[in-house]
Simulated scan of single mutants.
Amino acid sequence: MEYNNLLTDFEDGITTITINRPKKLNALNKETIQELHDAFKEADEDSATRVIVITGSGDKAFVAGADISEFADYSVAQGADLASQGQALLFDFVAHLSTPVIAAINGFALGGGLELAMAAHIRVASENAKMGLPEVSLGVIPGYGGTQRLPQLVGKGRAMEMIMTAGMITADQALDFGLVNHVTTSDELFLWIDKLAKRIKQNSPAAIGSAIEAVNAGFEDGENGFDAEITLFGKCFGTADFQEGTQAFLNKRKPDFKGN
């Protein structure tokens, strides 16, 4: 599929999606959000893709926020629809994909950009990255899941401070807060992520998808994460990946997982 605002690449089981709006610092507009949904959906449905990497073009920004010009004159109802549709189409969609998603934060990740990174399952930042939710400085609040996912990752107090000050934190602070998993040099970012992705993709795609679902269940209203884990654990016993994994272990060979 061809995109106006994205570049996609597939190599050795890893699909990389690059937001390609460098003149706008890769800001998210409606078209880009729709294209991201389509690209993630296509990669998730491709059995050859074991890991998805999301990043931004250039060396300045992952995503520097939303395209404010698109909604500056919105009404109350339009604002609510913007958040509802965006969360369903992209941010919640990414968080619940069965294919693991790694965010390669290669610069500014602000507003919707940080919210996109937080929707990913793992975050790796280059040392020049800066992260924040500056929405209150514009008279609005984060609307793509930021008020929910940030406290889950860094705790309520730190999330409140980041949101209320509208300030940015460095990559090292983000690592200390637990907002990112790892920090690398700019030159090593994608080499490091490639190594991480290769470690992930040698494991069972079916089991990884179930693990993502179980972890997410613990953060969902009305869901009991322990019950979800029990159910999903049991379902694993009915997969070909479970049979392959156990037989490979017993026969002292490397497993050949197919993802079913």
Rank of each mutant, 00 (worst) to 15 (best):
R50N: 03
R50Q: 05
R50W: 01
V51W: 05
I52G: 00
I52R: 00
I52E: 01
I52T: 06
V53L: 03
I54S: 00
I54H: 02
I54L: 07
T55C: 01
T55E: 02
T55W: 01
G56W: 14
G56Q: 13
G56H: 15
G56I: 13
S57M: 09
S57E: 14
S57N: 11
G58C: 06
G58S: 02
G58F: 04
G58P: 04
G58M: 06
G58K: 00
D59V: 15
D59K: 10
D59T: 15
K60P: 00
K60E: 14
K60A: 07
K60T: 15
K60G: 06
K60D: 09
K60S: 09
A61W: 02
A61T: 02
A61G: 01
F62M: 07
F62G: 04
V63Y: 07
V63I: 15
A64V: 07
A64Y: 11
A64G: 05
A64R: 06
G65E: 03
G65A: 00
A66F: 00
A66P: 02
A66N: 02
A66G: 01
A66L: 01
D67W: 09
D67P: 02
I68G: 02
I68T: 08
I68K: 14
I68P: 05
E70W: 11
E70Y: 09
E70G: 07
E70S: 08
E70P: 12
E70C: 06
F71H: 08
F71G: 04
F71I: 06
D73C: 12
D73N: 13
D73V: 10
Y74R: 03
S75Y: 08
V76Q: 07
V76M: 10
V76H: 14
V76L: 11
V76F: 15
A77F: 15
A77W: 13
A77S: 13
A77M: 12
Q78L: 06
Q78F: 01
Q78M: 08
Q78P: 10
G79C: 04
G79P: 05
G79H: 07
G79E: 03
A80N: 06
D81R: 14
D81M: 11
L82F: 15
L82W: 14
L82I: 14
L82C: 15
L82E: 09
L82Y: 15
